[in-house]
Amino acid sequence: MKVLSLYLLNKSGGLIYQRDFNPESNGINKLSSNDYLITAGTLHSIHAIVAGLTPPVLYPIQENQTGNQNQTGLFQVETEKFNLFIYQTLTGLKIISIVQKGVSQETATRFMANVHSIYSDYVMKNPFYTLDMPIKCQLFSNKVLLLSEAS
């Protein structure tokens, strides 16, 4: 699978990590850092609006095996060139990935679950990382890059 871009948002919708993968050939435009912040905030808001629009469920929610707690919010955006998936953890962290067309939802979800796992190791366990602040951890970046190449 080809991941084009990865975004991490803290629980208030602030962008704490953004990265494009092999940018010269991947068919996604580079934006200014301000535009990334706006994109993140907008997706966060739409996600919440969609969740608000969804009527309360009348049936039990299916058990999911991935840890993705995004049940009623904005889940997927499809465009001509790529798909965007949103994954949310119980603590409110959002992991957003932009992937090439044709990548299945399961594959993307698995990728984001793995990102969560790397985040829990290389960001949360870094004693000098301040919660909810932009992630500037080289180890995390390296691991994410490896993961994007492997999946």
């Binding site: 095996q65 991935t66 840890g67 953890t89 603590t91 366990k125």
Partner: peptide
Amino acid sequence: EEFLAKTNFG
């Protein structure tokens, strides 16, 4: 965060 990532609990 690690607990959630490893157990996938809702």
